[in-house]
Design a protein around this nucleic acid. Structure first.
Length: 203
DNA sequence: GAGGAGATCGTCT
DNA sequence: GACGATCTCCTCT
């Protein structure tokens, strides 16, 4: 699964102005591109979860708009980064048109470019590559994504230090499973994975 | 390899 | 004042 030389085309805003379930599915195989100083970090999306807005009890937006979650109520294609468990950041992209809540959580990615820098960011250089980014808190650490720097950033703009891209990777096989780590609406199958990919988070 | 407990703090009640 | 869209370490098998 490599594509070092392929051209990276930013994903247009319309892609995200849809139901989060469609966006979560279609994001599998796409790329997260992060410019960190002189380094370029690229990773392929292999696991996502859809959060549906005010009718989804598990979603942050379910109890209405707050300063914390306002990005997922805003225009589509923007980064919603939140802080959790006193230690970790999680990366989402806002979906649906402006004014409607909805988002997709990035749960796992496969490193494609800049692996040494990702390992350095993780501060665990001895870890095998597959453990660098196989979880939502891990991938933000590996890609040095923070709320202060990236929350609200337009991920459809290739001039930003973080954006989403398509390199023409063929549409992968996809499987849906229940979401992970939640207690409300836990039975709904809104997690999307590339089956058998070693970079998918466990469980 | 599986399972359980603790860490740690921003956000909302 | 309680909780959480998590991770790592430790113990046991």
């Amino acid at each position: 699964m490599t594509s070092q030389r392929a051209q990276l085309r930013p994903i247009p805003p319309e892609f995200f102005s849809r139901d989060p379930r469609e966006v979560a599915r279609d994001l599998l195989g796409k790329l997260v591109v992060r410019r960190q100083g002189r380094h370029r970090l690229v990773a392929r999306v292999v696991e996502t979860e859809a959060y549906l807005g005010e009718n989804d009890p598990a979603a942050h937006s379910s109890s209405g708009r707050t300063p914390r979650n306002e990005v997922i109520f805003g225009p589509s294609g923007c980064a919603y980064v939140y802080f959790i468990y006193g230690k970790y950041y999680c990366l989402n992209v806002s979906c649906e048109p402006d004014g409607i809540a909805g988002g997709v959580l990035f749960r796992a990615v496969e490193p494609v470019e800049g692996i040494p820098t990702m390992a350095k960011n993780r501060e665990l250089p001895d870890f095998p590559v597959y453990r660098l980014t196989n979880g939502p808190g891990k991938l933000t650490q590996a890609l040095a994504i923070t709320r202060a720097q990236h929350n609200g950033m337009n991920l459809t703009d290739r001039t930003q230090s973080l954006y989403l891209a398509d390199d023409g990777f063929p549409r992968p096989r996809i499987r849906t499973t229940p979401r992970i780590g939640i207690t409300k609406a836990a039975a709904r199958k809104l997690r999307y994975i590339i089956p058998d990919n070693p970079f998918v988070s466990k469980a």
